[in-house]
Computed example of a mutant assay.
Amino acid sequence: MTFINRFKLVFAGAALLAVSACGLVQPEALTPEAQAQTEEERRETIWDIFRDQDPDVKVSVNRFIWNASLEVLNFLPVESVDPFTGVIVMGYGTPPGGNRAYRATVYVKDPALEARSLVVALQDRNGRTVSASTQRAIEDAILSRARQLRIQDGRL
């Protein structure tokens, strides 16, 4: 377990203890003003982030671009994904028939199947960004594959 993971675990445990200790006061013993304030505080706690605020909120990325990104860049190991923000972070890998290693970060920023919905950032092992033409070629390959996936889906 890495240091950061241990820190996160200890921090989460401390936060849990702090929040659970806040409930030791019995509501019956409070004055009406304090009881109203306690009810108001309950509506604005850390636990509110775990409640569904709006059940109609959905993932707002294009699934065809998302899947096409994973297919086109399948030679890169996936390090982390977040479909709610549309970010895919990939580690270093060498493309088939290539001799340079790259890493990529893909950002699907819109649910539309359009070029403006996709941003790809590529870096080589030295941390330098690759040429704009190479990035555009990768984006074009992803968008072409996304269109193929949409046609195959058949629900146009």
Score class of each variant (00 low, 15 high):
81 V>E: 15
81 V>G: 03
82 D>G: 13
82 D>T: 02
83 P>M: 08
83 P>I: 10
84 F>D: 03
85 T>Y: 02
85 T>A: 04
86 G>S: 05
86 G>P: 04
86 G>W: 02
87 V>W: 07
87 V>I: 14
87 V>Q: 13
88 I>A: 04
88 I>M: 08
89 V>Q: 01
89 V>L: 10
89 V>F: 02
89 V>Y: 01
89 V>D: 02
90 M>S: 08
90 M>N: 02
90 M>Q: 11
91 G>T: 00
91 G>P: 00
91 G>H: 03
91 G>I: 01
91 G>M: 03
92 Y>C: 03
92 Y>M: 02
93 G>Y: 00
93 G>T: 01
94 T>W: 07
94 T>P: 02
94 T>I: 15
95 P>M: 12
95 P>Q: 05
95 P>I: 05
96 P>K: 12
96 P>F: 06
97 G>K: 10
97 G>Q: 15
98 G>M: 12
99 N>S: 05
99 N>C: 11
100 R>D: 09
100 R>L: 12
101 A>L: 02
102 Y>I: 08
102 Y>K: 04
104 A>E: 04
106 V>P: 00
106 V>G: 01
106 V>H: 01
106 V>M: 05
106 V>L: 01
106 V>S: 00
107 Y>D: 05
107 Y>H: 06
107 Y>F: 12
107 Y>L: 10
107 Y>R: 09
108 V>N: 04
108 V>D: 04
108 V>I: 07
108 V>M: 05
109 K>G: 15
109 K>P: 12
109 K>D: 15
110 D>N: 14
110 D>E: 14
110 D>Q: 14
110 D>F: 10
111 P>F: 06
111 P>H: 02
111 P>E: 03
112 A>K: 13
114 E>K: 15
114 E>P: 10
115 A>N: 08
115 A>W: 12
115 A>T: 11
115 A>F: 14
115 A>H: 14
116 R>K: 15
116 R>C: 14
116 R>M: 15
118 L>S: 13
118 L>T: 08
118 L>G: 10
118 L>V: 05
118 L>R: 06
119 V>M: 08
119 V>S: 11
120 V>W: 08
121 A>L: 06
121 A>C: 04
121 A>T: 09
121 A>N: 01
122 L>E: 00
122 L>F: 06
123 Q>K: 03
124 D>V: 15
124 D>Q: 08
124 D>R: 13
125 R>E: 09
125 R>A: 13
125 R>I: 13
125 R>W: 07
126 N>V: 11
126 N>W: 08
126 N>Y: 09
127 G>N: 05
127 G>R: 07
127 G>D: 02
129 T>F: 02
129 T>V: 03
129 T>D: 01
129 T>W: 05
130 V>W: 01
130 V>F: 04
131 S>K: 13
131 S>H: 10
131 S>G: 11
131 S>I: 03
131 S>R: 15
132 A>E: 14
133 S>T: 15
133 S>H: 14
133 S>M: 15
